[in-house]
Every structure is written in C-alpha cells, then in structure tokens.
C-alpha cells in the first residue's frame, strides 16, 4: 500500500547534505589566523637569523622544512610570513569592502549622475587585466606592504561596487524600504541603516572568496619584486628566492611556501563557497 502510494508522489529529496568541506575549510581558516596571531611564540627560530654553517639543509628533526641559502629556518619563516600575508590580504579586502560597499550602496539607491560616473570608472578599472594593473600600481607607488594593500584594494574595488550596487538597487523599491521612508528615515539612514545590513551577508561571501585571491595577489606581487622586499619573510619572496635553487634539487625552498599559499587560498575559497551555498535561498529548507 505504502509503496503503491509512493507512485503518486514525485521523488522526495533531502537537499541538506553534510557540509564537511565547509567545516574543514573553516577550521583551516581558524588555524591560519591562529598561526598568524601567535607567530612570534610558535616559531622555533628567529626567521631572520642566518646560520651560514647550516645553509641549504634538507628537512630534518631540527629544521622541519629545511634551511635556506643563508641558513635561516624555513619553517619559522613560513610562520612569520603567514602573519604578513594574512595582514596584507585582510587590510586590502577590508579597504575595498568598506569603500566599495559605501560607493555601491549610494549609487544603487540614488542612481543619477553619480551612479553613471562611478559605473564608468569601474568599467575603466575592469578594462585592464587585473594583475597587470596591480603590478603597475605597485611599481608606481614603490615597494612595501602598504603598496601591496593599496594595489590589491584598488583592483578589487570594482567587484564590491558592482555587487553592492546591484543588491541595493534590487531592494531599493521593496516595501520595507518604503516603510522605512514613511517612518521618517532620510536617504542616509535608508541606505546605511536599512539596505546595507540586508546586503551584508552577500558581501561577506564575496569578501571570503576575495581573501584567497588577495593572498595570491600579494604573494604574486612580491614574487615579481614589486611588493615586499627581502629579507622580510613572505610566501611570494620565499618562492622567488627558492626558485633559484630548484634546479640544484633544493625542493623544500619552493615546495613549503607554495603549499602554504595553496592551502590558504583553498581554505578561504571553500569557506566562501560554503557560505554562499548556505545563504542561497534556493538551498534553504523551510
């Protein structure tokens, strides 16, 4: 009877699946942040202290990731670099999120001339290949961590402007926005007190996905020599310096920073994907 009755219904799918991947990437992000915050206490050696007698030693019990050409502990340098790279990526993303969401929200709500000017400006930025633009900016501004932050933030800005503008614009005519106007809220309060908080979850997803990209961008600029300068420990520089010894079989100089970079980017991207799935109303169960 039950089986027969089943034929009258269409399949009953349980859409909620265990989200182990998101949980794992979340744990990875937490671990990265912990390493960054606690870097000076967990690094076994001074990341800048050289030991010429012990240069280019392969991984061992004393030096888990080996030593580099001047005998610095690669593992300690990786830990110190985690702090710098995360700080650069986070500052850049926060900067473009803050500026982009404000600009996008105002344009999306008001429209008009400002919207058109900002919109075309964004188009111009997007007309350049992003990484090339970042290199040009970093080169023009001179090296250093702040330069990378600025270059990465500027290159990311268009995405936040466009996303916020679209999300705010789609909601600007909603009943609850009109209700806020009736309640005596001026345009400023409507945009920043009512609309923007409703768009925040979407922006948070974008920011999380963007963090991975920003880390890659920062490392890439340093790799090319327009970012952070040696001997500062930074993943991109470590890869660049280690590459010279790769043909000599000193694989650990490139492999470990490369691995750290890969894991960090992967963790942020998977977390962003997971958050997006969770926020997507189509994935929701009532």
């Amino acid at each position: 009877m039950r089986a027969a009755a089943n034929r009258l219904t269409r399949g009953t799918g349980d859409r909620r699946r265990p989200d182990a991947l998101t949980a794992l990437s979340g744990a990875g992000v937490i671990a990265l942040v912990a390493v960054a915050v606690l870097a000076p206490w967990i690094a076994p050696y001074d990341p800048l202290a050289s030991d010429a007698a012990n240069a280019l030693a392969p991984p061992s019990a004393a030096h888990w990731a080996g030593t580099d050409q001047v005998g610095r502990d690669v593992f300690s340098r990786l830990i110190a670099a985690t702090r710098l790279d995360l700080a650069i990526a986070l500052s850049a993303v926060v900067a473009s999120l803050a500026l982009g969401s404000v600009l996008g929200a105002v344009c999306g709500y008001r429209g008009g001339l400002l919207d058109r000017i900002v919109g075309r400006g964004v188009d111009v930025l997007l007309a350049f290949p992003l990484f090339i633009l970042a290199i040009a900016l970093a080169a023009a501004l001179g090296g250093g961590a702040v330069t990378i932050v600025v270059a990465t933030a500027v290159v990311n800005l268009p995405f936040y402007v466009r996303l916020t503008r679209a999300e705010v614009n789609a909601r600007a005519g909603a009943g609850w926005v009109e209700a806020a106007r009736l309640a005596g809220n001026g345009p400023g309060r409507v945009v920043f007190g009512v609309l923007l908080p409703n768009v925040m979850p979407v922006l948070a997803v974008q920011a999380s996905l963007n963090l991975g990209w920003a880390i890659l961008n920062a490392a890439g600029l340093s790799f090319l020599g327009v970012g952070v300068e040696p001997p500062t420990p930074e993943w991109g520089i470590m890869v660049a310096e280690g590459a010279r010894y790769l043909t000599a079989g000193k694989w650990w100089l490139v492999a470990f920073p490369g691995l750290a970079l890969t894991l960090a980017v992967l963790a942020f991207n998977l977390l962003g994907d997971g958050l997006r799935d969770r926020l997507d109303p189509r994935g929701h169960r009532g």
Binding site: R2, A5, L8, T9, R10, G11, T12, G13
Partner: peptide
C-alpha cells in the same frame, strides 16, 4: 495523482 514531493497517501 500529482501530489507534491514529500506527500504520501496513508
């Protein structure tokens, strides 16, 4: 005979 998904004739 077009019950929504999840509906069962008991």
């Amino acid at each position: 005979g077009l019950l929504a998904p999840g509906a069962q004739i008991t």
